[in-house]
Amino acid sequence: MKNYQTVLVALLLTVILVTACSPIPAVQAPAALTPAPVAPATNVTLKVFAPSSMTDAAKELASAFEAANPGVKLAIEIGHSPTQRLQLTQGATGDVFMTASQKDMDDAIADKSVAAGAAKVFATNQLVVVMPPQNPAKIQKLEDLANTGVRLLVAVVDTPIGKVTLTSLDKMDKQFGAGFKDKVTANIVSNEAGVKPIVSKLQLGEADAGIVFVTDAVAAPALKTVSIPPELNVISQLNVAPLAAALHPEHAAAFTAFVASTDGQASLKKWGFMPGKP
């Protein structure tokens, strides 16, 4: 009796485990849904790793690239660049890596996930302060972030956006003085996992202000903004590169080139990205 139960439970768990694992190959599913190809070799699913600031822009880049290259589908995996870099060292496979910052790409090159010299800056992004539509804390200028009782959301310091937020706060501290950074730090109610949770919580009106990328504010037009002047801002350089172990090297190179092309840059501009320095 006892043995039966043990074995049955183990079997059940195996079934659960196997079913739980199966969604992973499902990334390929879109390709399988299209009519049976005459020449299967042209049916390619290109896997692109992209940072969360690229969520909307990457979709647009993908459909434009798919339209120009029949038979090629893009599977875009959105995540934190440092996490994705780590996943790539742990055996994640794909074709193209887009990073939120120069450092992430440099790290990937040091890991040999990306060949040296293969990466290029394709866009830049900068910071902006966002508030809920009602602006409950009545924030009008950067100095207001230090007002007592302001509930401020920033990204966790380990993320690319978190790092530049801290740098920008340091610059503001120097300019505004009077313990600006300490006051602002005391106002931080949460270190969010990235820009998207900050935007969502501000859209719900749960906090008073947040610091995000300009592109996130463009994607959430309902939010109010206070811009950060260039001397207090930090420019993040987004990088793109085909992976050294790309599954489809030719297409990966083509997509990388497309991102830097006039068409690609036009899509990026629409979402608030500034052109990358050549």
């Binding site: 043995n3 043990t6 074995v7 049955l8 183990a10 079997l11 768990l13 195996t14 485990l17």
Partner: peptide
């Protein structure tokens, strides 16, 4: 059949 159960079950336990 029990031997099979043990084999598959053991694999499951190992995976966990």
């Amino acid at each position: 059949p029990l031997a099979g159960f043990f084999l598959v079950g053991g694999l499951g336990a190992l995976l966990l």
